[in-house]
Design a protein around this nucleic acid. Structure first.
Lengths: 250, 250
DNA sequence: AACCCCATCCCCAGTTCTTGGTATGTCTGT
DNA sequence: ACAGACATACCAAGAACTGGGGATGGGGTT
């Protein structure tokens, strides 16, 4: 069993403070797991130029060049498959997840010509924040070490979590706190209720609900509902899970 | 090492065809891992009333009743924490992920009184499709088996993946898509701008902005700004990074 | 006792949103 | 050429929100 590798890796990551260190740790662990290459990509949801994410890999230069030059990311079946599953998958299972076009197969072939054979990709998503993948691949002539997928899954998860931590360290602010009642009102607003409806649900006056929301906005220094909801979501004061479920019940 | 449990569990899940079978398998594996209880919840991102998700657990009846009766889900810090991480977490780390209010702590206490002490929760997200958590918990007087978190993580992932497979067999829904202009308007609204301000920024008429937002709401079948923003955020149509930067610049 | 925070309630004036329409021009695919 | 999707623009009525006041009582702390 290689499970100890995951634990060792976890311990190692605690001390990781930079992208470079993470890169080194990943390279080492991927070899010990029996893979030839690794690639970790993290995309923070951002259309603006800053903090676009992170890309660490030790793929052959050739492949990296082709991939970037032709913007193959836009038509990468592996990426599409990542949007369909919460668990890692070997590339030879992709056609169970997404339909493969001729172009897709061709792309996989080009990969093989560049030295990337089969692979195992671990996808992870964090709504509103970003998404990432961690791939472990072997050369074309080699078989995937299937017995170690479970450990690879764990190692990938750890690496992505670490990468996410490194990327979000940059945004560090004080979190305003709300009173329980304020949060409660905010929650119902986020669920799409009006102040009047919220008042009925909480069995208090509409004015009081408005007042709570007023105070909450003040604390967050925003001027409108939607910004308040966004801020509270971002800070983890309320969660998507609290909200989404209520969309139909509304 | 208990890693073989994950492999056995994986093999077992291949043959699982119903919620009941998954429930049984989870109950068994959670005991073998050294936990007293498990809970798996899956929330599909569904606007229709059917297939709201899945809830399997063997929590004490008392706790389940209290939880549902008082809609504690709306103030459950564990659920909020799930939106902040891609890797599992023990409940005594929650305050590192999200701010805990007095109500939150009280809720955890009520849980303890009902027989739920500490726990380890594995969150997984699939943008546009849904989200799920798999929790393994122990009774108040017991310690969490920390050495088995890695296996629990893997088992939880497998279970959630299986649950997702079972649930998505029942229905598939397309994620509503917005036009470029609609998304652009939505983005400015999420940034806290009014329709009039957005109009000035985009150099179009206020009425047009309102119209775009009208159409966007229609597609998402919501009735207000805040719900639209939440839905778009959840589906990954817009991201926090697109918004937060503008909090002060506004 | 004085003070602060919280929750509750109230008023008001002005602004913004939501919902229901209609209408024109462009572009794209068939 | 025509249907359909898209972006644009406008109107009007009623509901909802926002920001500015103020007021009361309960629970804590110092």
């Amino acid at each position: 069993m290689y499970a100890y590798l995951a634990e060792e890796f976890a311990t190692e990551l605690i001390n990781v403070r930079s992208d470079t260190e993470l890169d080194g740790a990943l390279k080492q662990v991927s070899r010990r797991l029996g893979f030839d290459h690794f690639a970790l990509s993290l995309e923070m949801r951002s259309t603006s130029c800053e903090a676009p994410g992170l890309l660490l890999h030790d793929y052959p230069d050739e492949w990296a060049k082709v991939y970037i030059a032709f913007d193959l990311a836009g038509q990468d079946p592996v990426r599409r498959a990542c949007d369909k599953t919460i668990i890692g998958f070997a590339w030879d299972w992709i056609d169970e997840l997404v339909p493969l076009t001729r172009g897709d197969r061709q792309m996989l072939n080009v990969g093989r010509e560049c030295g990337i054979g089969n692979g195992y990709t671990v996808p992870r998503h964090l709504p509103g924040i970003g998404r990432g993948t961690c791939t472990f691949a072997v050369r074309p002539e080699r078989e995937l070490p299937r017995r170690r997928f479970a450990v690879a899954e764990m190692v990938g998860t750890l690496a992505l979590s670490c990468a996410l931590g490194l990327s979000s360290e940059k945004f560090d602010e004080k979190v305003p706190s709300l009173t329980d009642r304020q949060r409660e009102c905010l929650l119902w607003v986020a669920r799409g209720k009006t102040a009047a409806e919220t008042a009925m649900i909480l069995e208090i006056s509409t004015e009081t609900v408005i007042q709570h929301l007023k105070m909450a906005r003040e604390r967050y220094q925003v001027h409108c509902k939607q910004s308040l909801v966004v801020a509270a979501l971002f800070d983890g004061l309320i969660g998507f899970a609290d909200i989404i479920r209520w969309r139909d019940a509304g």
